[in-house]
Design a protein around this nucleic acid. Structure first.
Lengths: 115, 115
DNA sequence: TTCATTACCTTGTATAGCAAGGTACATGGT
DNA sequence: ACCATGTACCTTGCTATACAAGGTAATGAA
């Protein structure tokens, strides 16, 4: 397969900046309600279009399931293949809480002038 | 050398969450004044201690120099080896401006309830 | 000499985002 | 029957970053 086209330093940085952030975004979404993968993808694309695609989201969801942070159930659809709905487990809720805390710390570090 | 000890999912996530963020932090620091590497490290350690060490910072500074975002000058010190001071180039200032903008977008995505 | 402090750097590993593919079901058009 | 479109899932291989764990060298004090 082709490489991921690193291109210019700024584009490259945005890729790195998304790391971790998407996982936080997904867990927050699942904390609010049930979602299936394709719906999350479309929400991401419409929500400002920050460059996140299926190739990023589906592996992420698999990872979360393996780690026991989310669980799934299949629901048949009349407009295509079955949808896989994701929801938070208790462990997922605990981790989301930790992540929210750490994220606040990171942001406060950025806001400090440290001059 | 030993592996990076992945440990639990949360610790792993914090590593990912730092990616990109440290670069933004460094460029912001250099936008305010001149710094040398060791001083930045100590500032990071004292500033909340988020797990960032020399092994992360020095390669980052090298990268920024290769990309032309910062330039350096050596200054002799009376308390040890010479210090390498970093400051922003015009290209660095332009990229920092883009990064600040993108970072705002990412944060607004997180704050949107998207429910 | 020996030690701590200051100050720089390198090597190898793990991980996440990504591009570019693929598979399969339902529907409507030809 | 055939094909295109939309829906919905997944995998493979690449790249770049953070990190642990080392290393090197200069200064000054014991």
């Amino acid at each position: 397969m082709s490489p991921s086209t690193p291109q210019d330093p700024f584009q490259n940085w945005t890729v790195q900046a998304r790391k971790g952030l998407l996982e936080l975004w997904v867990l927050r979404a699942l904390a609010a309600s049930e979602w299936y993968g394709y719906d999350l993808v479309n929400s991401l694309i419409s929500d400002g279009s920050l460059g996140i695609t299926e190739g990023t989201l589906y592996p992420l969801l698999s990872r979360l399931r393996v780690q026991g942070l989310v669980s799934t159930r299949l629901v048949e659809s009349s407009s295509g293949p079955a949808r896989k709905y994701y929801h938070l487990t208790p462990a997922g809720k605990r981790q989301l809480s930790q992540m929210n805390q750490y994220w606040t710390q990171l942001n406060s570090m950025l806001e400090t002038p440290h001059d």
